[in-house]
Design a protein around this nucleic acid. Structure first.
Lengths: 379, 379
DNA sequence: CGCGTTGTCTTCGATATCGAACGAAGATAG
DNA sequence: CTATCTTCGTTCGATATCGAAGACAACGCG
């Protein structure tokens, strides 16, 4: 059941082009890969031989002979990916195009520690695989998102604020012990950014904001995830202006997180006598036009926009995509946009799009799939 | 005198490795380029044939046969580069390793407009070439830094704040009309960042601050300059907290520039009855321990540090290098460092170095050389 | 001084890629 | 329906890269 993809050299690039939907024929592949048409034919032949690609009828003519359409072979393999949250995990099985064919959400307490959680996760994967994947179809990679910083050099969790027991735990090694496969461990906001980036073709530089219970951000530079030393994108503790001084768990005052996160809004609503349990409840209140909630969300948007102003001037992205559960509240995006456009350099906002995220709830799973495929297809 | 480098394919990579001092022998080249030793020998042979490389004695043995040391041929060519400022231009001639062998500073009023300035620049280049370069040595590239935003797609100046008449002027085309060669036009802070980056081997992600009369910043991501859409790095109009409200030329209040630039400090000193002409005078005052000057520079450092806090958390670089004429005032770097370390996430500052720039006054010229070589050697 | 070791560079056959030419299959026009 | 053009895919000789083996050159040690 466990085996690495038997690809070498240019084969990986070709497979990737087909998997990501960029190429559908040998001619497409030749154009996009830069290889000679003859070389493409040879490689494709090998990939079909290996059971990874399949020919499937013919495509539409573009004025000449019809192309013979190429697809990933359905039996080529699957990826198992997850997005771990504080109390829930989102699990998915993807085909080698990175398209999910099963997605489930299961309760899971990350605070129970890494040993317990990762064991549970692997069991859940095995469970899903047994239920939805024939034994003949091999598992090709395993990946998970983590709600905390991940050191890209070691794939260990570092200084997580809400994951007791996880600090410096070798997550990737733990999974590798159970699966002899490419393993991916990455911060959840980063995965979301990668997934979201695929919904913005043509844009090479993106900021993807995750506004939920907490605030996270992922950064795509030149089409690739920027990790820095593992902390990149963490804007939750940037100081913001505010009338009242609120101290954050990090020890500093007036971090963005204590003024604009879903948790902070829930607190403020509670102080106003409105109890909410989860961030989705806040969105519901806004959609019901409860003035306190709307006003609070607007304020959060302005605070976030203030922070983004500096970042947009500095990074000058093509797109700022706003995702996370709180982004379903329309005033959030609106007020972020207003603040950034008002205060940024015209040059920086000239071609800037600030918009709700497009990739939906599975963005992180899609991102995990994309990164896993990248890893598997360049080996 | 004008001809493009006659290199194709892998030759460029090899030449680059020798030029940048990373390889000194065929064996080095084989290791670093990933090519087979036999292929390297062939390519090197061709490059020697073409007069670009030369063998120069033998290097030190590492336990076996001595390597035959490779160097760029002295007659291989030169690059002409400049860094245009408001009232001065710094001009240099570089060999193909990017090492300057002539550097001059000449007065030049950029406000006279692009036609005049670029004509003057080309005359100055011709002048320098005639004086220092034999006619047999060809010019291989021309580049210049500009104190304003440059659109990377078109190499035109866009919305420059202090360059009347330059808006949307096709600088690269204008130079190309006079030189049939690779042409480089880039923002001055970006060039400085590229030059500085070469002084930090091993660091892939850098922020390079240029603190002078104005405030600029360049960003190196993954070892390469990040341009965004041409505005990346422009932090001069990020709002900062301040007691007094000062309106900036951009129309907004309390931009970093009006509180922390050399120009702003000069203004504040004048208000205190101390007249200064140039930023260097401020540095002199600080070094003479004039309390008003030192205090103002400290304040500027804190303001800059505040802005950097958000950027460092977000970008998570390996190095923040502080350059520009004002950086010679030691309290500036000290107070930037103190502010950033105090307020940033520990994870983001764990491996962060905040230090004075290492590349010196020619950083921008070095950067221009590096980018020109990159361009010339990948064609 | 001889000899094994280590590292550098070249020779040469094996292999992979390229690119031009060709055949296949369909669109378009008269 | 035929002629012509376009695109797709394959065949095949020319070319470039590779990699193993060997020649070369210096060092260290007995």
């Amino acid at each position: 059941m466990d085996q690495r993809l038997p690809v070498h050299g240019a084969q990986g690039d070709l497979l990737r082009l087909v998997a990501f939907g960029e190429a559908e024929s040998r001619a497409d592949l030749a154009r996009l890969s830069g290889l000679a048409a003859s070389s493409v034919s040879l490689r494709v032949e090998e990939l079909i031989e290996a059971g990874l690609l399949a020919e499937e009828g013919s495509g539409p003519s573009r004025g000449g002979r019809r192309p013979r359409r190429l697809r990933l072979s359905p039996g080529a393999g699957v990826l198992a990916v997850a997005d771990l949250g504080a109390h829930h995990a989102r699990l998915g099985l993807l085909d080698l195009s990175g398209v999910p064919f099963v997605v489930e959400e299961r309760p899971c307490e990350i605070a129970k520690g890494p040993g317990h959680t990762l064991g549970w996760l692997a069991d859940a994967f095995d469970d899903l695989l047994a239920a939805h994947v024939p034994a003949t179809v091999p598992l090709r990679g395993v990946g998970t998102g983590i709600p905390g910083p991940v050191d890209p050099a070691t794939s260990r969790v570092v200084n997580p604020s809400r994951m007791p027991g996880w600090n410096d735990y070798p997550v990737a090694e733990s999974l590798a012990a159970r699966y002899d496969l490419p393993i991916l461990v990455e911060n959840d906001a980063n995965l979301m950014a990668v997934g979201e980036a695929r919904s913005w073709p043509g844009s090479e530089n993106l900021m993807v904001l995750k506004a939920g219970t907490g605030i996270g951000c992922g950064m795509i530079v030149n089409g690739r995830l920027h990790r820095g030393r593992g902390a990149a994108g963490d804007i939750s503790h940037v100081p913001v202006r505010s009338a009242a001084t609120v101290v954050c768990a990090c020890g500093h005052a007036d971090c963005l997180e204590v003024h604009a996160s879903g948790a902070a809004l829930a607190g403020a609503l509670a102080a106003a006598g409105i109890e909410v349990e989860r961030t989705a409840d806040i969105v519901a209140l806004v959609n019901d036009a409860v003035p306190e909630a709307t006003s609070l969300v607007r304020g959060a948007g302005r605070r976030i926009g203030e922070v983004l102003t500096a970042l947009v001037n500095f990074f000058n992205p093509d797109v700022v995509a706003v995702g996370g559960s709180l982004s379903a509240a329309e005033p959030l995006v609106t007020s972020i946009r207003a603040t950034v456009y008002e205060r940024c350099l015209p040059l920086a906002t000239r071609d800037l799009e600030i918009a709700p995220a497009r990739a939906g709830r599975d963005a992180a799973l899609l991102g995990a799939g994309a990164l896993l495929l990248d890893a598997a297809l360049s080996g």
